[in-house]
Design a protein around this nucleic acid. Structure first.
Lengths: 270, 270
DNA sequence: ATGTCTTACGGAAGACGTAATAATA
DNA sequence: TATTATTACGTCTTCCGTAAGACAT
């Protein structure tokens, strides 16, 4: 098969029909063009150019090769250029998902920062319910999602931790625990703990169940501010490790836009 | 632009999705495939594969590049293979022209030898009149022509001298020179010498003019055997250099068939 | 005599393999 | 632990430019 420099030397010489000008366009010496063409002709087994020191012309074999190779090589060059462009440009659409009101605030801020930096990037921030985040990421309907860490799934990547918040327990307003300063993980053993996909699919539904006395729900401490309700009280955990939030994406769909958004989100929180 | 080894490594890995098997197919080490892909990704500016030590998969960017590059590269490979094939095969048609009865015998013999050697080569031997040889060669209606040397025209090539014959002068049968043993170039000064494209376009027409006493005509000594006529006598030159015959062809249309025919003609006369 | 292609030769870039290392299941 | 991808490094091919040579106008 032909080497890159052979293809380019051939196509250039076929166009210029002059070793000196070809060498200039190729940024090499004329001697190099001569040797490259010579080697190419040996490899093909026939002369591709008829040349005297005054005239260079394509042979029939050269014409045929030129006609077939030129469009194919242009296509490869265009594909590479497009790939390079797609890899570096932030122009285009970016879909970002969050769960929870606090996450929406954060991502909206990040989106605004991103669009100040890259006006050509079109960002849409959507809310996802608890169980929708991973499916949306997997099927590609969103490019990024804000979620709790860690997410250990093959094919997914995670950005840095953006927010770290204490944990709290949502309990019915009249529940004995509601008057406590804090709760412990051990306290959960005596309680009905609601599960996300099992008992209900959205946070508000779960909190409604909590308010109705159907169980308790571990949440992030921010819930007290964003999901304050008369029927629910939030009691901080004394001993639970903090809840960490960050962005995830499908590794095979990472691009300049996702990188820029992750960067904007990180910068926003400094 | 991408190097040949980068393109082939990429396309192979995109197919195999396994560095070891790709390396095997490419006849290089796995380390080389790894480094080549790495460099390619740096050049493009984005990962083309997502890989762990257990799994290799194309990214979106990789898929797009693969879809665009693969058919184009196949086309180039096919064009090169076809050029190589066309350069070496003798299959196909070959048109050969001659002037004069002796030339016809010679080329017919060469054509028979060629077809014994290369049955897949289809040869057609045609007679050309004097002025037709060069036009037919120039416009490509024949691939080879037997003609007198030297032929110094840009774009034409000549094979070896095949036949070398003494020269003779065709004179009217009753002419004083007809009784001479030989003539000299100096004798031409006192005579009307007929010219090929000027006075007539075929040899028989010229000889008819000679027989009619309209002038004399320098010819090859073989004319005495192949163009014996009652109205024309042939007298050898004592001092003219021999007339040399050989094959010519358009340099840019030389191919395996023309080379094989020239070779057969040369071998025939050994 | 001049412009142009080709050949000869020494130097530098990089393509390659081997072997050691890291990471995954 | 076994398989597979990556990194490190020394070797060697070959790509390249310079300079001299060959050829045609």
């Amino acid at each position: 098969m032909l080497e890159r420099h052979e293809i380019e030397a051939f196509l250039t010489l076929a166009e210029e029909l002059h070793f000196g000008r070809s060498a200039e366009r190729l940024h090499v010496s004329t001697a190099r063009v001569s040797q490259t063409i010579k080697r190419l002709e040996v490899r093909i087994g026939a002369p591709l150019f008829v040349r005297t020191s005054r005239r260079v012309e394509l042979t029939d074999a050269g014409h045929e090769l030129n006609d077939a190779v030129r469009p194919a090589w242009r296509q490869i060059a265009a594909a590479v250029e497009q790939a390079r462009e797609a890899a570096t440009t932030t122009a285009g659409r970016l879909e970002v998902a969050f769960t929870g009101a606090a996450g929406g605030q954060l991502l909206t801020g990040a989106a605004e920062l991103l669009q100040r930096r890259h006006p050509e990037c079109e960002v849409r921030v959507r809310e996802a319910q608890l169980g929708e985040v991973l499916p949306w990421i997997r099927d590609g309907s969103v490019d990024l999602a804000l979620t709790t860490f860690p997410v250990a799934e093959a094919g997914l990547s995670s950005g840095p931790v953006l927010v770290s918040e204490g944990r709290a327990l949502a309990v019915p307003a009249g529940h004995p625990l509601a008057r406590r300063e804090s709760v412990s993980l051990d306290d959960l053993n005596d309680l009905d703990v609601l599960q996300s996909p099992g008992d209900a699919s959205t946070l508000n539904e779960l909190l409604t169940l909590v308010g109705a006395g159907r169980g308790v729900l571990p949440v992030g401490a921010q819930a007290r501010r964003y999901y304050a309700r008369p029927d629910v009280s939030y009691v901080p955990f004394s001993d639970a490790p903090p809840l960490q939030w960050g962005l995830i994406w499908r590794t095979d769909r990472a691009n300049a836009r996702t990188r820029a958004f992750v960067c904007a989100a990180r910068d926003l929180l400094r």
